[in-house]
Amino acid sequence: MAGKVITITSGKGGVGKTTATANLAVALAMREQRVVAIDADIGLRNLDVMMGLENRIVYDLVDVVEGRCRLRQALVRDKRLPELFLLPAAQTRDKTAVSPEDMVRVCDELRQSFDYLIIDSPAGIEQGFRNAVAPADEVIIVTNPEIAAVRDADRVIGLLEAEEKGPIRLIINRLKPEMVRRGDMLTSEDVLELLAIELIGIVPEDETVITAANTGRPVALSDDSLAGRAFHNIARRLLGEEVPFAPLREPGLLERLRDWFGRKEGEP
């Protein structure tokens, strides 16, 4: 087995990297993939609480790198999905405790036993980011349709392209269809045109993401939320499936009529 390393990064903080990491890990694991989610945000770890695994951490990434435990011992198994594991970050250390070479070495070992390694990068473009992207086979940029997030995403894309890291794909997170309709939010087309990279998914703003974080149950565990379904679509695209980009708003009258007639014609 030679697992694929996907790093989730953004430049700006608070756009939903950790949420995306947790949910893509869950969605891939629900599709029979062996997945390990890796928290590369040393000193400010949060992937553990988003996944609801914070009480089961014994060792962390820095313990592995500094030889206090074997890699296997630091992996936390998610009891809800037998194919899903977490490699937590250290909370009491800082980014300098790990080097890009350490990350490459740890990931090379994990590739042997997992299909997907999903790395949650810290915000920023300093060493924590360098650590997170060093082992990446593929990078997913998370952004919001909002001026500061898009600008920072562009900066990160520039850095990754200069290093010839890639492919680089984009998640537009927390889109509010109602604000887009009023013209008061950048549209997904605007963001794509400005950043000029391939889109892998659009996740609408969804309150259930917050309640999911409250309880440590990522939205992708069930299929009854818009955001959860959006993350499952992204997981399917990662696995190579062609999934159309569904409209995020309620269809208008004309579209409903067209669909209705279309369906009639399509029926045997």
């Binding site: 001026i147 600008r151 009023r182 939010m185």
Partner: peptide, 20 residues
């Protein structure tokens, strides 16, 4: 006045040009 989304797009276009 143009809607704020449009303003954001035009401002970003300039800012990204300068940044790049």
């Amino acid at each position: 006045e143009p809607p704020s989304g449009e303003v954001a797009r035009e401002r970003l276009r300039l800012v990204l040009t300068y940044d790049r």
